[in-house]
Amino acid sequence: MTGPEDRCRLVLIVPQGEDAEAQAKILGDALKGGDVASVIIPQYDEEDGAFQKRAALLVPLVQEAGAAALIAGDSRVTGRVKADGIHIAGNLAALAEAVEKFTPKMIVGGGNATERHTALEMGDANPDYLFFGKLDGDIKPEPHPKNLALGRWWAEMVEIPCIVMGGSDLASVLAVADTGSEFVALCKAVFAHPAGAAVAVAEANALLDEKAPRFEA
Rank of each mutant, 00 (worst) to 15 (best):
P4V: 13
R7Y: 10
R7A: 08
C8T: 15
V11F: 14
L12E: 05
L12V: 03
P15H: 10
Q16C: 14
A20G: 04
A22G: 07
K25I: 11
L27Y: 08
G28K: 01
A30V: 09
A30N: 08
D35E: 15
S38R: 15
I40Q: 04
I40S: 05
P42S: 07
Q43H: 07
Q43P: 11
Y44Q: 08
A50I: 08
Q52R: 15
Q52T: 12
A55L: 07
A55G: 05
A55S: 06
P60E: 04
L61S: 01
E64P: 06
A67K: 04
A68Q: 13
L70I: 15
G79V: 00
R80T: 09
R80D: 11
K82L: 11
D84C: 06
H87R: 00
H87L: 03
I88C: 13
G90I: 05
N91F: 12
L92K: 11
A96V: 04
A98E: 04
V99P: 00
V99L: 03
V99D: 09
V99C: 08
E100M: 10
K101M: 13
K101C: 10
F102H: 12
T103E: 13
P104G: 02
M106C: 09
V108I: 05
V108E: 04
G109T: 07
N112K: 11
A113K: 03
T114D: 13
R116G: 05
R116C: 07
H117T: 14
A119H: 03
E121Q: 12
M122L: 13
M122Y: 13
D124T: 10
Y129C: 02
L135D: 13
I139Y: 14
I139W: 12
K140S: 15
E142K: 14
P145W: 00
P145M: 00
K146P: 03
N147R: 05
L148A: 05
L148P: 05
L150I: 00
G151Q: 10
A155T: 04
V158Q: 08
C162P: 04
G166P: 00
S172M: 01
S172P: 00
V173F: 10
L174I: 10
A175H: 14
A175I: 09
V176Y: 06
V176K: 04
D178S: 10
D178K: 14
G180R: 00
A185P: 02
K188S: 14
K188W: 03
A189T: 01
A189W: 00
V190P: 00
A192E: 10
A192Y: 09
P194R: 06
G196C: 05
A198T: 00
A200S: 03
A200T: 02
A204M: 06
A206H: 13
L207E: 09
L208A: 00
D209C: 12
K211N: 12
A212H: 07
A217E: 12
